[in-house]
Design a protein around this nucleic acid. Structure first.
Lengths: 151, 151
DNA sequence: TGCGCTCCTGACCAAGGAGGTCAGGAAAGT
DNA sequence: ACTTTCCTGACCTCCTTGGTCAGGAGCGCA
């Protein structure tokens, strides 16, 4: 139940791309802006490209840009591109698992876990992220003082 | 963002303990009931014991039982015992990370992610799990048809 | 006291992922 | 042609995952 460095980096780089007005941004600039090891970032950007989230051009004046408008790319899209499906259990989707005995209802719990993750990750777009205007359900969650304490 | 086999096993075993009326349950019985490799399960139960969730006695008539009533143990307790803190980013708690540039609001997003996981995991008790009566917020999430489709 | 039962613990293991680095190739621009 | 920048695969170290194995320690009972 943790977020990998790769996913974190991917979202941060995507946020920089979302904020860039027109024209390709060099990998090096993204790496500098977010303090990400350049060569590692290039691998990540390549995965984002293969997922159709980003486009790229080589050579002088080359760089990366978003394939779609920033308000049509969600954080879930970016995370899935680099981490694969969200909330798998034992490397399988929760709806495909069969539980027995007293754990029968555990499936519903894992489904609910996935659904709750989705309500956050699929509703925040890169545009929301860069201008700080998170959807109300999300900012409500982050606004609870409890949410900020470790446990 | 995945649930490990260990966490899944731990919750399933805990559910069996929650359902057992009075008296210690042998590891072997738990392993059989939930189809978990016995020796692996013993390590998991040991972790649950160290976390104060379970107690145990050796010898004939020995076995495991819950240290607290089943309606006072949440799934979050069990998951934390075996997987550590929920929703860490890059192995650090989200409230301790500093984001720069256009990713500044990403911290709020990860905080919201953690909060949303908590609303599910901290509100479902083992008692809820075994009798299938999930809290209304949780069953509402699991009731959406969308929640059951992969993406 | 001894014996069997069950938990307790550490060591080990193979495979894979996390988080990178390195070296070179391939397109684009000038 | 030459530089710039992305593209790709190979490689690396360390840690985690999902186990197994072997033995020890405490408990109940005869």
């Amino acid at each position: 139940m943790r977020v990998s460095a790769k996913a974190d980096y991917a979202v941060r780089a995507a946020a920089e791309l979302a904020a860039a007005e027109e024209g390709p941004v060099k990998g090096e600039k993204l790496a500098d802006a977010q303090d990400i090891p350049l060569q590692f970032l290039e691998h990540i950007l390549l995965e984002l490209k293969h997922a159709g989230i980003v486009r790229a051009r080589r050579g002088a004046k080359g760089g990366y840009w978003l394939a779609r408008p920033a308000d049509e790319v969600t954080i879930a899209d970016v995370v899935r591109a680099v981490e694969g499906p969200i909330a798998h259990v034992q490397s399988a989707p929760p709806e495909s698992i069969e539980y027995r005995g007293n754990a029968e209802h555990l499936q519903e719990v894992w489904i609910a876990v996935r659904a709750s993750l989705r309500t956050v990750l699929e509703h925040v777009t890169l545009a929301d992220l860069v201008n700080g205007q998170l959807p109300s359900e999300v900012s409500a969650l982050a606004a609870q003082p409890d949410a900020w304490v470790a446990r």
